[in-house]
Simulated scan of single mutants.
Amino acid sequence: MTDAPYNPDPKAHPGLHAIAIFEGLKGVLALAAATGLVLVGPLPLRRWVEALISRFHLDPQHGVLPGLLQSINPQAVHLAVLVVLVYAAMRLAEAWGLWRAKAWASWLGCIGSAAYLPLDLYALYHHPGWHTWTVLVINLAVVAILGRDLIKRRRN
Protein backbone atom coordinates (compact mmCIF):
# COMPACT_ATOMS: atom_id res chain seq x y z
CA MET A 1 0.00 0.00 0.00
CA THR A 2 1.46 3.36 -0.97
CA ASP A 3 0.89 6.62 0.79
CA ALA A 4 -0.22 8.88 -2.00
CA PRO A 5 0.07 12.59 -1.23
CA TYR A 6 -3.13 14.34 -0.31
CA ASN A 7 -4.63 16.12 -3.28
CA PRO A 8 -7.81 17.99 -2.40
CA ASP A 9 -10.70 17.72 -4.78
CA PRO A 10 -10.47 20.79 -7.04
CA LYS A 11 -14.28 20.86 -7.19
CA ALA A 12 -14.55 21.27 -3.40
CA HIS A 13 -15.57 24.58 -1.84
CA PRO A 14 -12.73 26.49 -0.11
CA GLY A 15 -14.82 26.93 3.05
CA LEU A 16 -14.68 23.21 3.79
CA HIS A 17 -11.51 23.57 5.86
CA ALA A 18 -13.08 26.25 8.04
CA ILE A 19 -16.14 24.09 8.64
CA ALA A 20 -13.88 21.08 9.28
CA ILE A 21 -12.04 23.00 12.00
CA PHE A 22 -15.36 24.10 13.55
CA GLU A 23 -16.72 20.53 13.51
CA GLY A 24 -13.44 19.17 14.85
CA LEU A 25 -13.60 21.62 17.76
CA LYS A 26 -17.15 20.52 18.51
CA GLY A 27 -15.96 16.91 18.50
CA VAL A 28 -13.06 17.65 20.85
CA LEU A 29 -15.36 19.58 23.21
CA ALA A 30 -17.79 16.67 23.20
CA LEU A 31 -14.94 14.30 24.10
CA ALA A 32 -13.97 16.63 26.95
CA ALA A 33 -17.60 16.68 28.14
CA ALA A 34 -17.82 12.87 28.06
CA THR A 35 -14.55 12.62 29.96
CA GLY A 36 -15.81 15.12 32.51
CA LEU A 37 -19.01 13.14 33.02
CA VAL A 38 -17.02 9.95 33.57
CA LEU A 39 -14.60 11.61 35.99
CA VAL A 40 -17.22 13.53 37.95
CA GLY A 41 -19.95 10.91 38.17
CA PRO A 42 -23.51 11.31 39.37
CA LEU A 43 -23.00 12.45 43.00
CA PRO A 44 -21.33 15.81 42.28
CA LEU A 45 -23.86 16.42 39.49
CA ARG A 46 -26.67 15.87 41.99
CA ARG A 47 -25.03 18.27 44.45
CA TRP A 48 -24.66 20.94 41.72
CA VAL A 49 -28.32 20.66 40.77
CA GLU A 50 -29.33 20.81 44.46
CA ALA A 51 -27.17 23.94 44.84
CA LEU A 52 -28.91 25.54 41.84
CA ILE A 53 -32.32 24.78 43.31
CA SER A 54 -31.27 26.26 46.64
CA ARG A 55 -29.47 29.29 45.16
CA PHE A 56 -32.43 30.34 43.02
CA HIS A 57 -35.01 29.44 45.72
CA LEU A 58 -36.84 27.04 43.41
CA ASP A 59 -39.53 24.62 44.47
CA PRO A 60 -37.64 21.38 45.24
CA GLN A 61 -40.71 19.30 44.36
CA HIS A 62 -41.74 20.78 40.98
CA GLY A 63 -40.00 22.00 37.87
CA VAL A 64 -37.25 21.04 35.49
CA LEU A 65 -34.33 20.97 37.92
CA PRO A 66 -36.01 18.73 40.53
CA GLY A 67 -37.01 16.40 37.69
CA LEU A 68 -33.42 16.41 36.45
CA LEU A 69 -32.19 15.77 39.98
CA GLN A 70 -34.35 12.66 40.26
CA SER A 71 -33.09 11.31 36.93
CA ILE A 72 -29.36 11.63 37.73
CA ASN A 73 -28.05 8.17 38.54
CA PRO A 74 -25.08 6.06 37.40
CA GLN A 75 -27.03 4.48 34.54
CA ALA A 76 -28.21 7.87 33.25
CA VAL A 77 -24.65 9.23 33.39
CA HIS A 78 -23.35 6.20 31.47
CA LEU A 79 -26.06 6.67 28.84
CA ALA A 80 -25.22 10.38 28.57
CA VAL A 81 -21.53 9.52 28.12
CA LEU A 82 -22.42 7.05 25.35
CA VAL A 83 -24.60 9.60 23.54
CA VAL A 84 -21.92 12.29 23.80
CA LEU A 85 -19.25 9.87 22.53
CA VAL A 86 -21.39 8.99 19.49
CA TYR A 87 -21.89 12.71 18.84
CA ALA A 88 -18.13 13.32 19.17
CA ALA A 89 -17.34 10.46 16.78
CA MET A 90 -19.75 11.85 14.19
CA ARG A 91 -18.34 15.39 14.48
CA LEU A 92 -14.74 14.16 14.24
CA ALA A 93 -15.52 11.89 11.28
CA GLU A 94 -17.28 14.78 9.55
CA ALA A 95 -14.33 17.07 10.27
CA TRP A 96 -11.88 14.55 8.80
CA GLY A 97 -14.07 14.05 5.75
CA LEU A 98 -14.51 17.79 5.16
CA TRP A 99 -10.79 18.39 5.57
CA ARG A 100 -10.17 15.72 2.94
CA ALA A 101 -12.98 17.19 0.78
CA LYS A 102 -15.09 14.03 0.80
CA ALA A 103 -18.57 14.35 -0.67
CA TRP A 104 -20.10 12.13 2.03
CA ALA A 105 -18.89 14.57 4.67
CA SER A 106 -20.53 17.47 2.85
CA TRP A 107 -23.78 15.50 2.80
CA LEU A 108 -23.47 14.64 6.50
CA GLY A 109 -22.73 18.24 7.45
CA CYS A 110 -25.42 19.72 5.25
CA ILE A 111 -28.13 17.40 6.55
CA GLY A 112 -26.93 17.74 10.15
CA SER A 113 -26.85 21.53 10.05
CA ALA A 114 -30.16 21.78 8.21
CA ALA A 115 -31.77 19.64 10.91
CA TYR A 116 -30.97 22.38 13.46
CA LEU A 117 -32.63 25.17 11.44
CA PRO A 118 -36.20 24.60 12.74
CA LEU A 119 -34.84 24.64 16.30
CA ASP A 120 -32.88 27.81 15.53
CA LEU A 121 -36.04 29.48 14.21
CA TYR A 122 -37.99 28.36 17.28
CA ALA A 123 -35.27 29.79 19.54
CA LEU A 124 -35.23 33.02 17.55
CA TYR A 125 -39.00 33.38 17.90
CA HIS A 126 -39.02 32.72 21.66
CA HIS A 127 -35.65 34.24 22.63
CA PRO A 128 -34.68 36.88 20.09
CA GLY A 129 -31.22 38.28 20.58
CA TRP A 130 -27.78 38.51 19.06
CA HIS A 131 -26.84 34.99 20.21
CA THR A 132 -29.81 33.31 18.52
CA TRP A 133 -29.23 35.33 15.35
CA THR A 134 -25.54 34.34 15.41
CA VAL A 135 -26.33 30.63 15.70
CA LEU A 136 -28.92 30.87 12.91
CA VAL A 137 -26.54 32.74 10.59
CA ILE A 138 -23.71 30.25 11.24
CA ASN A 139 -25.98 27.27 10.53
CA LEU A 140 -27.35 28.91 7.39
CA ALA A 141 -23.79 29.63 6.21
CA VAL A 142 -22.74 26.02 6.82
CA VAL A 143 -25.77 24.68 4.93
CA ALA A 144 -25.15 27.15 2.08
CA ILE A 145 -21.44 26.33 1.79
CA LEU A 146 -21.92 22.57 1.96
CA GLY A 147 -24.95 22.70 -0.34
CA ARG A 148 -22.99 24.77 -2.85
CA ASP A 149 -20.12 22.29 -2.61
CA LEU A 150 -22.48 19.40 -3.38
CA ILE A 151 -24.12 21.25 -6.29
CA LYS A 152 -20.71 22.16 -7.71
CA ARG A 153 -19.56 18.54 -7.48
CA ARG A 154 -22.74 17.37 -9.18
CA ARG A 155 -22.25 19.70 -12.14
CA ASN A 156 -18.67 18.61 -12.77
Rank of each mutant, 00 (worst) to 15 (best):
M1R: 09
T2G: 08
A4D: 12
A12T: 04
A12H: 09
P14M: 01
L16K: 03
L16T: 00
L16Y: 10
I19H: 10
A20P: 08
A20T: 05
I21Q: 11
E23K: 15
G27I: 08
L29N: 08
L29S: 15
A34T: 04
T35W: 13
G36M: 12
L43H: 08
L43Q: 15
P44M: 06
L45D: 02
W48A: 14
W48C: 05
V49F: 01
L52P: 00
F56P: 00
H57F: 06
L58N: 00
H62E: 14
G63H: 09
V64I: 13
L65E: 00
L69V: 01
L69S: 00
I72V: 10
I72F: 05
N73W: 02
Q75H: 10
Q75T: 08
A76I: 07
L79V: 11
L85D: 03
A88I: 04
A89G: 09
A89Q: 03
A89L: 09
M90V: 15
L92D: 09
A93S: 11
E94K: 10
A95D: 06
A95E: 05
A95T: 06
W99E: 04
A101I: 00
A103S: 15
W104D: 06
S106L: 05
S106W: 03
W107Y: 12
L108C: 07
G109A: 03
I111N: 02
G112Y: 02
S113D: 11
A115K: 03
P118M: 08
L119Q: 06
L121V: 07
Y122V: 11
P128D: 07
G129H: 06
W130V: 14
T132G: 05
T132C: 08
W133E: 10
V135A: 15
L136W: 04
V137S: 15
V137R: 07
I138S: 07
A141Y: 12
V142M: 13
A144V: 14
L146F: 04
L150P: 11
L150H: 09
I151D: 07
R154G: 13
R154T: 10
R155Y: 08
R155C: 04
R155W: 08
N156M: 12
